[in-house]
Computed example of a mutant assay.
Amino acid sequence: MKKTKIICFANNKGGSGKSTTCGNVGYGLTLRGKKVLLIDGDMQLNLSLSLFDEDQVLSLAKGEKNLYEAIRKGEDLQSYILSTKYENLDIIPSSTLMSSIEYELFSKWQREFILKKGLKKIVEDKKYDYILIDAPPTLGGWVMNILCASDEVIIPVEATPWGLFGIGNMFEFIEQVKEINSNLKIAGILITKVDTRKSYFKQTIEDLRNIENIPVFQTVIRVDSAVEWSQDNNMPVLAYKKSSRSGNEYLELTDEILKRR
Results as ranks from 00 to 15, higher is better:
residue 158 E to F: 00
residue 91 I to G: 02
residue 45 L to I: 06
residue 4 T to N: 07
residue 110 Q to I: 10
residue 120 K to A: 10
residue 220 V to Y: 08
residue 152 E to G: 10
residue 74 G to T: 07
residue 103 Y to Q: 13
residue 167 I to D: 00
residue 243 S to W: 05
residue 250 Y to L: 04
residue 229 W to K: 14
residue 22 C to P: 01
residue 38 L to W: 05
residue 135 A to S: 15
residue 146 I to Y: 07
residue 157 V to C: 03
residue 226 A to N: 12
residue 137 P to A: 07
residue 16 S to Y: 06
residue 36 V to H: 03
residue 44 Q to D: 12
residue 196 T to K: 15
residue 183 N to M: 05
residue 29 L to E: 12
residue 39 I to E: 03
residue 77 L to K: 14
residue 174 I to C: 04
residue 80 Y to C: 01
residue 135 A to V: 12
residue 159 A to H: 09
residue 239 A to K: 15
residue 154 I to R: 06
residue 130 Y to C: 05
residue 90 D to C: 11
residue 104 E to H: 08
residue 58 L to W: 11
residue 257 I to W: 01
residue 211 I to D: 02
residue 23 G to V: 07
residue 88 N to F: 05
residue 225 S to Q: 13
residue 201 F to A: 06
residue 61 A to K: 10
residue 57 V to S: 04
residue 261 R to Y: 11
residue 186 I to T: 10
residue 190 L to K: 12
residue 3 K to H: 11
residue 68 Y to W: 07
residue 63 G to V: 09
residue 205 I to L: 12
residue 147 L to F: 06
residue 69 E to K: 14
residue 257 I to Q: 06
residue 177 V to Q: 04
residue 141 G to K: 14
residue 165 F to D: 11
residue 36 V to P: 00
residue 134 D to I: 08
residue 245 R to A: 11
residue 188 G to C: 06
residue 3 K to I: 11
residue 143 V to H: 02
residue 128 Y to Q: 07
residue 18 K to Y: 03
residue 258 L to A: 13
residue 163 G to Q: 02
residue 17 G to V: 04
residue 24 N to Q: 09
residue 166 G to R: 09
residue 51 L to D: 06
residue 115 L to S: 13
residue 141 G to E: 12
residue 203 Q to K: 14
residue 93 P to W: 02
residue 104 E to L: 03
residue 82 L to H: 15
residue 209 R to Y: 03
residue 261 R to E: 14
residue 96 T to L: 08
residue 222 R to D: 01
residue 7 I to S: 03
residue 67 L to A: 10
residue 78 Q to L: 09
residue 29 L to V: 11
residue 89 L to E: 05
residue 32 R to M: 10
residue 62 K to R: 15
residue 5 K to G: 00
residue 246 S to E: 06
residue 204 T to P: 00
residue 96 T to E: 08
residue 231 Q to G: 02
residue 99 S to R: 15
residue 64 E to N: 15
residue 243 S to A: 14
residue 200 Y to E: 05
residue 3 K to P: 00
residue 81 I to E: 02
residue 204 T to H: 00
residue 14 G to R: 12
residue 231 Q to V: 10
residue 130 Y to E: 07
residue 164 L to N: 14
